[in-house]
């Protein structure tokens, strides 16, 4: 029996470029990342793309597959290829393309630091452990967003990022919200001030494209809503 072939269109170039079609044999349990690797290893050694863990932990393999941002190592071809056997693979949106499927994620992570996405310790190594009750409302709010792998799928899906390149974006704001709910962190007020500006949480239009596409089932929309409430309250109290 003849091998079943997929027609895989891959973006070649940078901001300017074009889709190039490659024929890739279909396999059982094949992932989209397998398609890209097959092309790079057998058909087009010059193809640029990123991956590392292949198990959905590192967040480096995200691409736009048939128009939707996805983690490619955990996306089965069976889920995205239509009956016609076509798959279209492009780089993520809202970031400069370096080459082919590899984006420059610097703007994305710069925004994490602008949103004060870094833990601000309040204790030293000689202090005792901080007791954090797992069932507390704060800890549960942090837990809901903590599994983020920094893949930028949400950032790529967000219209507001496309409209306003300064917008901090769903992932950085989600990170800020998890830290805001960390009782050990000492920068809550400064962080709220950092995320409350024009390009911060209040710019979110609640489209939920971020939530819709996040492969870790996180809802940045919910985290951003939390930041909106917390920063409004802080502003009313005159803290920020």
């Amino acid at each position: 029996m003849a091998e079943e072939m997929l027609e895989v269109s891959v973006w070649r170039g940078a901001a300017e470029g074009r889709f190039v079609a490659y024929a890739v044999p279909r396999r059982a349990n094949q992932t989209v990342l397998d398609l890209v690797s097959h092309i790079q290893q057998r058909l087009e050694p010059g193809l640029s793309y990123r991956f590392a863990c292949r198990v959905g932990m590192c967040g480096s393999c995200a691409m736009t597959v048939n128009g939707k941002p996805r983690w490619t190592c955990r996306t089965h071809v069976a889920r995205v290829a239509g009956a016609d056997g076509r798959v279209e693979i492009a780089p993520l949106r809202n970031m400069p393309v370096i080459k082919d499927l590899a984006c420059d994620l610097a703007p994305f992570f710069d925004k994490w630091s602008r949103a004060r996405g870094r833990f601000a310790p309040t204790q030293t190594r000689t202090d005792d452990f901080a007791p954090v009750a797992p069932a507390s409302i704060q800890r549960q709010a942090a837990d809901a967003g903590i599994e983020c792998i920094g893949c930028a799928v949400c950032y790529s899906a967000c219209d507001v990022v496309a409209w306003n390149p300064d917008y901090l974006g769903p992932a950085a704001l989600n990170r800020a919200w998890t830290l805001h709910n960390d009782a050990r962190d000492g920068a809550h007020t400064a962080r709220l001030a950092a995320v409350a500006g024009d390009a911060g949480c209040h710019a979110c239009h609640s489209h939920q494209s971020c939530t819709e596409h996040c492969p870790k089932q996180i809802s940045p929309t919910l985290s951003i809503a939390g930041l909106k409430r917390a920063s409004a309250l802080a502003a009313l109290k005159g803290e920020i």
Binding site: G17, G67, K68, R93, A157, Q208, S209
Partner: peptide, 15 residues
Amino acid sequence: MRPSIDLRGRGHAAY
């Protein structure tokens, strides 16, 4: 060029 507006990622109920 990739189309600047691509509706495929926006076809969800919340959108």
